[in-house]
Design a binder for these strands. Sequence first.
DNA 1: TCTGGGGTCCTAGGACCC
DNA 2: TCTGGGGTCCTAGGACCC
Length: 424
Amino acid sequence: MNRLALVDCNNFFCSCERVFNPALKDKPVVVLSNNDGCIISRSEEAKALGIPMGAPLHEQQEVIRKHGVQVFSSNYTLYGDMSARVMSILREEVPAIEVYSIDEAFLQVPEGFTEEQARVLRAKVLQWTGIPVCIGIGSTKLLAKLSNRHAKKNKDLTGGVFDLASYWDPDGILTGMETGDLWGVGKNLAQRLRGMGVKTALEFKQADPAAIRKSMGVIGERLLRELNGISCLELEEMPPDRKGVMASRSFGSPVELLEELEEALANHVARASEKVRRFGLLATRIEVFLQTNRFMRDEPQYSRGIAITLDRPTHSSAELMTVARDLLQQIYRPGYRYKKTGVQLVNLVSEDEYQPGLFDQPKARIDVDKIVDEINRRMGDPKNPVITRASQGTEGSVKGWKMRSERHSPHYTTNWKQLPVAQV
DNA sequence: TCTGGGGTCCTAGGACCC
DNA sequence: TCTGGGGTCCTAGGACCC
């Protein structure tokens, strides 16, 4: 019998901010998306104030002011480092682990693994990192997710740990859960199920597999089986090779000029190609896209993407920037107020496996890109690299495309100059 | 003033080939 | 009267997730 545990960090980004700033304890805290646009993490206190997930910041200003909600720009350097600490503790405890996202991991646990043991693990993570987690146990990924959700929703009763299979009334829990609360069932699938008269998780569990297959395809059938304890989603210890890398940002304020778009795009290409180099990959295809603000209903809208397959795979910033700029020029139309541009590098191949073609240039003896990457890694932070290309614009030329990040916490754990100081 | 960014998987349809 | 069928690759778009 398979046995899995899903460990999920509570309000992860907010919890990270709290670890190094104890004054935030018991206070409402929220963390914003890139560009300080939306609220993407909320402490329990902030949730209690009725601040919804994904809410635009400007809609919540009044609540924030009234209750003194502490607001932070996202600090992915800090969150990434804290995540690695949590994952390394988990990895030591179990034979196999799949890091599913920055704040979640599936653990392969022994057959006799109990809620009691999960509580010990939970306490250890909290003590060693300061991050509270919830743990759900089940025989499939979907059931572990489901248990985790219950543990989190009923923390007072569960103490943050739950195993559906050892509960006295599992059907009662499934009845109290809508299909849309299940992992993998979004708005559309939930609606389709409602159309079939299936509303609760229990009704879904007992539904006719053939009917589900017919109306929801293989995805529906897989969910149904997982819900019934038949594992369809394997634990993936080795992350599969990346399919693509994307980089894009909304502008702080609308941009109309091609030159500014080119500058913003050059920055996105720089980030995307650095990522591709870091993974030891080459891109064989590049896509550039451009769009106006779809929320501005009364403004003229324009949205277009264009892609080409490269003559040969590359991860050179200079080469990719040239191609990207050319593509942008092809789709750019004057007279629009643009909200966003971005680049996707896809069909990635391994640097080592790639066979150079007959007419390829031999590799440069010194790879300038990689040297720049190394310097930026050691000396800068991701939002402010110390070395950039001229096409990316210069410091001080404050342009419309610059991203907002006004309430950034320090890089407590990754920059010597920003280490927290203990008061004696 | 103000609405994130980065992924994955699946399906359908067209082009092309034998 | 009558106009293959099956496989593969590519692309676009939908749906979902964190």
